[in-house]
Nucleic acid binder design. Structure first.
Lengths: 224, 224
DNA sequence: AATGGATCTTACCGATCGTTAAAAACCGGC
DNA sequence: GCCGGTTTTTAACGATCGGTAAGATCCATT
């Protein structure tokens, strides 16, 4: 459905720009639009975001968005798609191999890091879910549910083997997800309560430690 | 700033309608408008919500909203005010008297119950924070921060007395808040993952048990 | 039943927003 | 230096939305 430029499938030359700048290189225009859309949709939601704001953020004229995307919803879906792929690929995978504590701790740390590095994506995801997931419902059914089921089975094995205390596995991961996600969605409120402008690395470290302590404690695992 | 009807300060005759119906009695028109706004703002956010939808939900004409409220933002603020007052009064208070376990368990149970009974209010609150809390920043500073500080002091006392394991008190309550809040904001996704239409009482019971298990475990408390 | 404030509706306006039409600018190949 | 496709902009349209003007309806009081 989406109109696509001819050069879309070209290999992106990422990271060749010197000295890892903070905002990603934004190689081509389409990515620049998606990056701008990420911020605007993250702050205002689908209906609240305006194409004018996105265009301004991307440094292009408003109608130029329609050269790359059919309409606002299409742009939103493309953004969600990019977000979910990054999410599922880099973050949500949890391989059961390796030490139980290491697996859990790494998972929690990755999630908090994602909240720190991509707060807008996390907010978009949260807003989408809060609105009843009208655009990613099928993705959740296909991907997230499967990954959850795998994790549930894993925890049940652990419990059956006596490695962890019995627990509702689905709720365990809902809670892990909620806690880590909160450090993106509600970072503003947290900073306000801590009387800071924004959360710093020390805050994220404390978050990781606290979440790990709660999860390990709940499962009856020692920290070591 | 808000235009108010003369009868605004009358004592509301609530609960006198027979047989506790599910939707609250909606005594006067202003409350009906606020109830409708709660749903619409909860689903679409401030900018996404339309006055037409709110008016339709309240069963009044669109311009009639402006008889009770100056504009859309004023209505939104009034709604937030009502929500925050209910929140602070009924939910967020945590009196330190009484058994430590009982205090924590009751607090968690109250929060989950609020998520179950008032999901729209929780979503509005979340959406507001996600947007950077432009309308309730001062409230957070005045009220929520104070309540958090009180809780932090309480946990620090517990830790100093050796009653609980050392923990970052602020993050502990951020996590409790995140977990309980999630069962409102993300109930749709959870239901989807559990292949249900909506969460049932058993789901909320499991949520309470899991959160209590994590918190008690993290603090080194036994369940009894 | 006439009055007058309180409550509520119909009709409408101006601004904004998503989107389209049309053409200008760019750019490599000849 | 012309050409053809790609990329980008200027101008503008129709729909929607927040808000206003003006008046109708209700209702207690007399």
């Amino acid at each position: 459905m989406r109109s696509r430029s001819v050069k879309d499938e070209q290999v992106r030359i990422r990271g060749t720009s010197r000295g890892g700048r903070r905002p990603p290189p934004a190689a081509n225009v389409e990515d620049k639009i998606l990056d701008a859309a990420e911020l605007v949709f993250g702050n205002y939601g689908l209906r609240g975001a305006t194409t004018a704001l996105i265009a301004e953020g991307a440094g292009v004229s408003k109608p130029h968005l329609y050269y790359y995307f059919d309409n606002k919803e299409d742009l939103y879906r493309a953004l969600l798609e990019r977000a979910m792929n990054r999410w599922a690929a880099d973050i949500d995978a949890l391989d059961a191999t390796g030490d139980l504590r290491t697996v859990l701790r790494d998972y929690i740390h990755r999630k908090v890091d994602f909240s720190r590095d991509h707060p807008s994506l996390s907010k978009i995801y949260a807003t989408e879910i809060i609105s009843g997931a009208p655009h990613i419902g099928s993705f959740i059914e296909r991907v997230s549910t499967q990954q959850l089921l795998a994790k549930v089975a894993m925890v049940e094995e652990w419990a059956a083997a006596g490695k962890v205390r019995p627990i509702s596995p689905a709720d365990l991961f809902f809670c892990i997800w909620a806690m880590t996600q909160a450090y993106a969605d509600f970072s503003d409120q947290m900073a306000l309560m801590k009387r800071k402008d924004r959360l710093e690395q020390a805050d994220y470290d404390a978050a990781k430690a606290t979440i790990v302590q709660l999860v390990f404690g709940g499962l009856g695992l020692t920290e070591a």
